[in-house]
Simulated assay, not measured.
Amino acid sequence: MTLWLLITRLGEAQILLPAAGLALLLLAQREDSRAAALRWALALGLGTLVTTVSKVAFLGFGWGIAALDFTGFSGHSMYAASVDIPLLATCALALFGRGRWGGALAGAALAALIAVSRVEVGAHSVSEAIAGFVLGGSLAAWVVAALPTRWPAQAALRTAVGLAPLGLTLWLAAGVAWAPPPVTHSLVVRLSLALSGREHPYTRAHLHATPRARLPVRSWPPAGDTDLA
C-alpha cells in the first residue's frame, strides 16, 4: 500500500502542471512546435473543465452512474495522461531529434500505472480511473500528433535539455516527498456545495442507496439564524 500511495502522488496537478509548463515554454520557443504548445494548453484546460464538471455534477447534485460505480472522472488519471504522454514525447524529441510516439508510449505506461494506483488506494472505482485515463490520453494524442516528427540536431539545445530526464525524475521525487497534501478536492467540494446550495456533498453510499438518496437543499435562513427578535 505504501508503494501505491507514493505512485498515486505522481498524478497530482501541483506536481505535474509545473513540469508541463516548462515543456510548454520549450515548445513555444520553436516555430515548428508552437501549434503543439497551443494544443497542449487547450487540452489541459479542457481536461480540467470536463473533470471538474463531472465531479461537481455528483458531489453537488448526485448525478452519477450506479451501475458503473461512477461519480466522476479521476483527476489524477486525467492529469497523468494529459501531462506525462506529451511531456515524455517532448523529451524524446529534444534529446534524440525524433521518437515522439515512443516517448508518448512511455508516458502512457506511466499514466496507466498512476491510474491503477487510484483504484489500489481506494480513491476511485475502476470506471472512474479508466475514464480519466481515456480522457487525458485522447487529449494527449491530439497534442502529440501536432509535434514535429523530427527536430534538427542542435548541439546547444541537446546540451541544455540533456539532463531533462534526470531533472524531471528529481522534480517528481521531490514532489512526492515534500509537496503538501493537495487541496483540489476540497476546492471542488466547496464549489459543488456553493452551486447546489446543499450543506453536505453526495457520497458513493448515496449513489448506491436504494432508492437513490436525495439530499435536501440548504434552508435559508439557517435554523437559529434569523433577524427576528
Rank of each mutant, 00 (worst) to 15 (best):
H185C: 10
I85M: 02
L3P: 03
A57W: 02
L215M: 07
A156F: 15
M1T: 14
P221T: 13
L10T: 04
V217A: 13
V56H: 02
V53C: 06
A109F: 05
A213H: 14
L228S: 06
T48C: 07
L172K: 02
F73G: 00
T48E: 11
E12Y: 00
D69A: 11
G122P: 11
R212V: 12
E12H: 00
T203D: 03
L24M: 05
S77M: 10
L168E: 02
H124Y: 04
T8C: 14
G47P: 05
L207A: 05
F73N: 00
V50W: 01
L44K: 05
G136E: 02
G132I: 01
A160N: 10
F96R: 12
W142V: 08
A28V: 10
A19K: 01
S125W: 01
A23K: 04
W171V: 01
R204H: 07
A213V: 12
L105Y: 06
P86V: 05
L46F: 09
G11R: 01
R100P: 02
H200R: 14
P86T: 11
V119I: 15
L3S: 11
L166M: 08
V53M: 09
L49F: 12
T2R: 09
A155Y: 15
D84N: 04
G102F: 03
A109P: 02
R204V: 03
A41W: 09
W178L: 14
L207S: 14
L157N: 03
A57L: 15
L170H: 07
L105A: 15
I130V: 07
T52G: 04
A35N: 07
H200F: 09
R198G: 13
V119L: 06
V144Y: 06
P211D: 10
T149W: 11
S127D: 07
S82T: 12
R9C: 00
A80T: 00
L163G: 13
S117D: 11
S125L: 13
P201C: 12
L166C: 08
A92R: 09
L170T: 15
A94I: 12
L27C: 14
R190M: 12
S82K: 08
I114F: 00
R218E: 10
V183Q: 03
P152S: 05
R204C: 06
H76Y: 04
A36Q: 14
A164V: 13
R214I: 05
W63I: 09
F61E: 12
W101K: 00
R190I: 12
L191P: 15
V116A: 09
W4M: 07
F70P: 03
A213L: 04
T226L: 13
S138M: 06
R39V: 14
L193I: 14
P148H: 01
A129D: 03
P221G: 03
P201H: 11
F73I: 01
L191D: 09
A153P: 11
G107A: 03
W40V: 07
S186N: 15
S33K: 02
M78V: 05
A131H: 01
P221R: 08
V144W: 13
L172A: 10
W178D: 09
D227P: 09
P222G: 04
L44V: 08
L170C: 10
L228T: 04
F133I: 01
L187D: 08
T71M: 11
S82C: 06
V121T: 05
L10M: 08
A104C: 13
G75R: 03
S117I: 07
Q29K: 05
L16G: 00
E120M: 15
A106Y: 02
R190F: 11
G99P: 02
V126R: 12
G102P: 10
A140L: 07
R214H: 09
S196T: 06
